[in-house]
Structure formats: C-alpha cells, structure tokens
Design a protein around this nucleic acid. Structure first.
Length: 284
DNA sequence: TAGAGCCTGCGG
DNA sequence: CCGCAGGCTCTA
C-alpha cells in the first residue's frame, strides 16, 4: 500500500494544518531554482510581490488547489501538490526535507515549506478575489463537492453530454474539482457502478447515488485525513490508515468487501491509470 | 480526444 | 535495474 496521494481530502487536511499561520507576516521567500510542473521555473519575483511584507489573511482551497491570501494585496499564492507535493508549517529550526523548492519565512520563527520530489506540483501567483480565475489553472475548474452544493442533476447533465466512460468523467476537474484516481475508484464501488460504463448510460437515480458516493468517500477520507497527517512524520502510520479505509483501490485479486458479494477485485487501465473494481457487484 | 511527457522513489 | 506510480498540460 502506498501513501495517500493528495486528492481533495488530503489537500483539505493540509489547508487546516496551515490555518495557524493566518495572521503571521511574510518576511521573505526562498526558492530552490529548480523548475516544477511542466519544467516551469517558479516565479520568485511574483511570489515576493504577492507575499513579502504582507500578513497571511486566509488559506483557501478549491478542488486540489490551495490559495494563500494576503491582507491588502491584489495577488494570492496558488499551490498544487501534484503527486508528491507537501506544504508544511514548521518551526524555523526544523531540518529541511530533501526536495524543498519554496520557503516562505514568517514572523514568529515559522516557515511554510513546499517540498516535492517529483516536481509535478507547482507554486504560482494569481490575481486575488474575483479575478482569481484569470489564472489558467483555475479558469476551467469545476465544482468542489465539499464546498458547494452539487446535486445529482448536475452530474447527470455532465454524464449525458459526454461519450466518455464514467470514471474518466469523475476525474475531469472541469466538472468536479478534487476527485482523483483513488477516490474515483472508491466512489464507483460505493455506488455499485462499473468504471467502464459510458457516462450517458447512467440514469438520473444512478447519478444521484454516484454523487452521494463521491461526497461520502471524500468526507470519510477527510475525517481520517487528520489522523493520517498526525502520523505523517511516522511514515508507517499513514499506510495502515490508508489500507484500512480503501475498499477497492490497490486490492487486485482480493475479495470484494461488499457483504455477500463474493466477487474478486479486478484491475484495468483507464486513461493510463490503474482502475480497481468488482466486476460482480458494480453494474455495467 | 487520445497519448506523450514531466519527475523521483521504490517494488519486483 | 527497469518500469510503474499518476495529475496535469501540451501536441498531433
């Protein structure tokens, strides 16, 4: 079992752990100089303009994106954790982990540090407030299932418009923001829908059930996210926690955990991603 | 719209 | 020691 990838619940957990930094002033910004997502360099000048000298006003999230908002500034700092990104609020004296790429020095001998071995994540500057969506990463972002009321009708409409299989649609951040590979698998299992079904084949009732399953899976993971993060320093802690609540992900060849099903979990590749499901109880 | 590419760690 | 892991962007 692998450690939790940063999907919506993990990102929300990170957001909460950053809250104590609100009210602190940014004294400086340091960058490693290495390029991050898509080999793009970090805009250090922009980060300084947006943050240095300002007081952190809020830490917000939409989907898998984090936004650091500052008081009396027209820009915010946008963070995506990619696959292996970490954003941590630490004491100055805490040793720096390898692959640290951006550090915000705060008053009170604290730092916010972004580390990311694979460099699939990024830290960038975006306009704050209503103009936030001018940043290309946020422009087409869909609805956040935990921040907004998203009904089955919304999902049903998106499914009807598409010729893609349902799992691909769940992963489309332009529709629902925050669902990743693991929770897409988990939600489909919970809703008893096979990942390979074409979206437009789903009934309104199935869409309702799937939307409820998405929320349930994300909420459940979020309640355990705090636990995972506390155990985070202790790397083994996360894995145990993860394995405990994942019903299908990573369980190829193992028995389906649905009561009375008796099926065996299968792995298929959809859109180049491992997809786990039970061919017995998840309807095609 | 499908597939390549980005990247490092780690499992086989 | 090769190849898989995967979120997102870009290209054909």
């Amino acid at each position: 079992m692998e450690a939790a990838l940063p999907e919506l619940p993990e990102v929300e957990t990170v957001r909460r752990t950053l809250e104590p930094a609100v009210g602190r002033r940014v004294l400086g910004v340091w960058t490693s100089g290495l390029p991050l997502r898509m080999s793009r360099p970090v805009d250090r000048i922009g980060l300084e303009r947006a943050a240095v000298g300002a007081v952190l006003g809020a830490v917000r999230r939409h989907g898998k994106y984090l936004m650091l908002e500052f008081e009396d500034r027209g820009e915010l700092v946008l963070v995506h954790l990619g696959m292996s990104g970490r954003l941590r609020l630490v004491q100055l004296r805490e040793p720096e982990v390898p692959h640290t790429h951006v550090v915000f020095a705060l008053d009170g001998a604290r730092q916010i540090r972004f580390s990311d071995p694979r460099r699939f994540g990024f830290v960038d500057v975006a306009p704050s407030g209503a103009r936030m969506r001018e940043h290309p990463a946020l422009a087409g972002l869909g609805r956040d299932p935990l921040l907004e009321r998203v009904g089955g009708s919304f999902l049903h409409e998106a499914l009807r418009r598409s010729r893609q299989v349902v799992k691909t649609i769940l992963l489309d951040q332009r529709i629902l923001a925050g669902v990743g590979n693991i929770y897409a698998c988990e939600a489909l299992w919970l809703a008893r829908i096979a990942p390979t079904v074409r979206g437009h084949k789903l009934s309104r009732a199935q869409s309702d059930e799937l939307m409820r399953a998405v929320r349930a899976v994300l909420r459940r993971a979020l309640t355990r996210g705090g636990t995972s993060l506390r155990d985070f320093v202790d790397a083994d802690g996360i894995e145990g926690e993860n394995a405990e609540y994942l019903r299908v992900y990573g369980r190829e060849g193992e028995p389906c955990l649905r009561r009375g099903c008796g099926g065996t979990i299968r792995r298929v590749v959809i859109q180049g991603r491992s997809t786990f499901y039970c061919p017995r109880c998840q309807r095609r």
